[in-house]
Amino acid sequence: MRFAAIIAAVNRLRGAVASYDVLSPYPQLVRAGFQRFSTYRQAALAGLATNTVFGFLRASVLVAVLAQRGPVGGYDIAAAVTYVWLGQGLLNVVNLWSDRELAGRVRTGDIVIDLGRPWDLQTALLATDFGRAGYAVLMRLVPPVAFGALFFPFRWPERPVTWVLFAVAMALGTAVSFGIRFLLNLSAFWLLDARGVLAVWGTVGGLLSGLILPLAWFPAWAQAVLAWTPFPALFQMPIDVFLERGDPLAVLAHQLFWAAALFALGRVTLARGSRRLVVQGG
């Protein structure tokens, strides 16, 4: 049976349901995402250990580089250290790794249930992801940053408005990351097993998005190429907003463009992928 027929039927149903349902499900999904991850408090605490160890090690390497010569790419010691600790904190906010659920549901066929629900699947997952990110800001971003600020020279924003801009940049970075993860997970429609694709992203993503080193330290040609990609939107850009480097509005525009472009691409891909879906049995 072709799946498109079900979707059409569900869409008709959804119209009927929506006229009765006053509350949109998405705000509730944001809350659900927050609550789901707040259940694993011990795991979050343990994860902090990893972030802290890596923060220490990476900050040490960058400080050693800067001790050798003056500021590199406009980062002095305080800025580079802040960069590292923010990066370790943002790692779980934008969620570079560990998002394989959708691919698993495509592989097992459970995606049928998700598509049949009276919601827009992509928007629903994005809403849940925002909830998850909100929890990560509290549990995974604030502690390592506080830790780094306590033990290392740290650069706090000078203008109050930077805090607002940083929050927006973080949200947009999460949306861009979601867009990339969503597309990679959907590759399971064609590959059946998206693990290889996700693993490649997991390793390459850190370097391309500025988690491992500030992109400003890269050779000029590499920086020029990366400026055309969505990757800097994950780490480099929110951190630069925090450090008040460059024009924050240009950063937000870049992020917004890629968040929207990836969302649209994800939409088309989901539609094409679900057309491939064949449901067996009665």
């Binding site: 390497v61 580089v65 080193l213």
Partner: peptide
Amino acid sequence: LGQSMELLAILVIFTQVTSL
């Protein structure tokens, strides 16, 4: 690829400094 990333990071660092 995963193992090469840190090597790439080292090479990037050495585009900026001559010793670490």
